[in-house]
């Protein structure tokens, strides 16, 4: 068996794949955060909790209604999106005129409630979620074994990320959205219902988190704690990438996932903190973030 940089290739590529998958989740979540922040000027602390809710909806659908993965892939983001719209309409929309920090504090409270409620109900141990039949098994690529489901997660999340990028940067609806981000009053004056647009944007952003949750369910166990630990890393990703650009969020997410995977191979002790170290270095060199604009 040959080795690469003193590491067996199975280990190296296995960790890189895991890094790529983590990176896809970072990308999906930071994309949602960036879209929401652009429109609402709110950092959605509840994003991680809603990702967890997405995974739990999938698990509940399977356990109690017998609806499988493909149904969950549609229904869970929808449910999370609707929950998001309800939260935005009832609470967040009251805070837009105040300091942005209140939005962060409110969503922090919501995250505590969601996480605490699920933890109270289902405990801290994870619930297993099976890989759908169509995606079981894997391919032997010669240098490594590629499980089909993991390949699917990477392809699916990349497709969603670039689809979102296309929708926002290249379609008419996206143009309205970008215009409303720049100057909501003017867009409203042109006869576009900005408050509805804001609600839908929040719903869409958190639906992305819910979708990520469903994709994650078969890989990680469905656990109430899966969201919040992730969201703090995603915050660091967002700080590194800067929230100015959607493509930037995607690239940074994937890149940091890979970097984390590499760290796991070569210096596993640091794998938990490598993203934060990168954040500190980026802030010292380029405070606006890699793709950000100062504002």
């Amino acid at each position: 068996m040959f080795s690469l940089l003193g590491v067996p290739p199975q280990v190296l590529f296995g960790q890189l794949l895991l890094g790529l998958i983590n990176g896809s989740f970072y990308a999906l979540l930071s994309l949602g955060l960036a879209v929401i922040f652009g429109m609402l000027n709110v950092i959605n602390f509840a994003h991680g909790a809603l990702y967890m809710v997405g995974a739990f909806v999938a698990w509940l659908l399977l356990t109690y209604l017998g609806l499988g993965y493909w149904w969950a892939l549609v229904l869970a983001p929808l449910a999370v999106g609707l929950l998001g719209i309800a939260l935005e309409k009832s609470m967040l929309s009251r805070l837009y005129k105040l300091d942005h920090l209140y939005g962060l504090l409110l969503t922090f409270g919501l995250a505590l409630i969601l996480e605490g409620a699920f933890r109270h109900q289902y405990g801290v141990s994870g619930q297993p979620y099976p890989i759908p039949a169509a995606l079981q098994g894997g391919q032997n690529l010669g240098f490594m074994f590629l499980p089909n489901y993991r390949a699917w997660v990477v392809v699916a999340s990349l497709t969603i990320c670039f689809g979102t990028w296309f929708a926002i940067e290249r379609t008419k609806l996206g143009a309205y959205l970008r215009a409303a981000t720049e100057n909501p009053t003017l867009v409203q004056a042109f006869g576009i219902n900005v408050p509805v647009m804001v609600s839908l944007t929040y719903g869409f952003g958190v639906a992305l988190a819910g979708l990520a949750g469903v994709l994650a369910a078969p890989i990680y166990q469905v656990s109430p704690l899966m969201g919040t630990n992730l969201i703090i890393i995603v915050f660091a990703v967002v700080v590194i990438g800067g929230m100015g650009s959607i493509l930037g969020a995607i690239v940074t997410g994937l890149g940091l996932g890979l970097l984390e995977g590499l760290t796991k191979v070569f210096y596993p002790e640091a794998s938990n903190i490598v993203v934060f170290v990168v954040m500190a270095i980026v802030l010292l060199i380029k405070p606006a973030g890699l793709f950000g604009r100062e504002r």
Binding site: L106, L112, E115
Partner: peptide, 15 residues
């Protein structure tokens, strides 16, 4: 559950 109560107080305070 303590986090739920704490979270509710958070939400009420902010709102």
């Amino acid at each position: 559950p303590v986090p739920v109560v704490i979270g509710c107080i958070f939400v009420v305070c902010v709102l």
